[in-house]
Simulated scan of single mutants.
Amino acid sequence: MAQKYRIYINDNTLFITHELPSQIDKIQQIEAEGFDFRSFYKNLKSSKQKHYLLLTKSPQAAFRKIKKDLTIVKAAGGLVNNAKGEFLFIFRNKKWDLPKGKVEKGEKMKVAAVREVEEECGVCIAQRNKRICKTYHVYEMGSELILKRTNWYHMTVKGSPKLVPQVEEGITEAVWVAPYEIKAKIKNTYPLIIDVLKNEKLL
């Protein structure tokens, strides 16, 4: 089975697949032959289109080629449940987000995910469960183009502990959100966070 990839670039999405995705309304197809990611990225700033499709017989090879040209950063995060069935959200950079952070050298993804959640929100994770999904996000850092690969895990805490946002990481709020309140939060979040929530059947 051919692989499918979804790369988030701010509010834009690049799909790399061997077939047309059914869930996207307006999508612009890009010529796969001679595709150059850096040129594509540069042109995004002047484009009004949100979703792009790179249709290719070998999505894996196309994705590998893109990765070669970018600096890879590994990150891990969590979707945390409390005993009341509420979910942990943080407010950072004027948007609602889920706790996550960079994986340290020699650290396992699943270990990093728990550490980052505990550091960013001041909670103690009782259990780390299955991996929900993997997301890819491209952004600029100086003259470099970074591809951040994040592994997301489902986690639980005991009871409904008080949350302590890690202010030095730019987190101004950490809150427990009931399932029915999630839709209000996603009006001001990132597309990749919506992807994580959909993978967990919360949307």
Rank of each mutant, 00 (worst) to 15 (best):
N43M: 11
Q49D: 02
L44C: 05
D36N: 12
Y52R: 04
H51W: 01
E33P: 00
A32W: 03
N43V: 05
R38L: 11
F40P: 08
R38V: 03
G34T: 08
E33M: 03
L53M: 09
A32C: 03
K57Q: 15
D36W: 01
F40S: 08
S46A: 06
E33T: 12
N43A: 10
K45N: 08
Y52C: 05
N43E: 14
S39D: 14
S39E: 14
K48M: 01
R38D: 05
F35K: 03
S39I: 12
K57I: 11
K42G: 00
T56V: 15
S47T: 13
K48D: 11
F35G: 04
E31A: 06
L53E: 07
E33C: 00
K50S: 12
K42D: 09
Q49N: 03
L55M: 15
S47N: 08
S39Y: 10
T56P: 08
K57V: 15
T56R: 09
E31H: 06
P59H: 14
S47I: 06
E33A: 12
E31S: 07
Y41H: 07
E33Q: 11
S58L: 15
K50G: 02
Q49C: 00
N43P: 01
K57P: 15
T56E: 11
S58D: 15
T56H: 11
L44H: 05
L55Q: 13
P59F: 11
K42Y: 07
F40C: 08
E31C: 07
S39A: 04
P59R: 13
K57L: 13
N43C: 02
P59M: 11
E31G: 01
G34F: 07
N43F: 09
F37P: 01
T56I: 13
H51L: 00
L55C: 09
Y52H: 10
E33G: 00
A32M: 03
S46M: 02
Y52K: 05
S58Y: 15
Q60N: 13
K45H: 11
S47W: 03
S39N: 15
E31Y: 03
Q60I: 10
K57A: 14
K42R: 13
L44W: 07
T56D: 10
G34P: 05
K45D: 10
F35I: 08
K48C: 00
D36S: 04
K50M: 07
S46T: 14
L54F: 05
K45T: 09
K45P: 00
L54Q: 01
H51Q: 13
K57S: 15
S39R: 13
P59L: 09
E31R: 09
E33I: 12
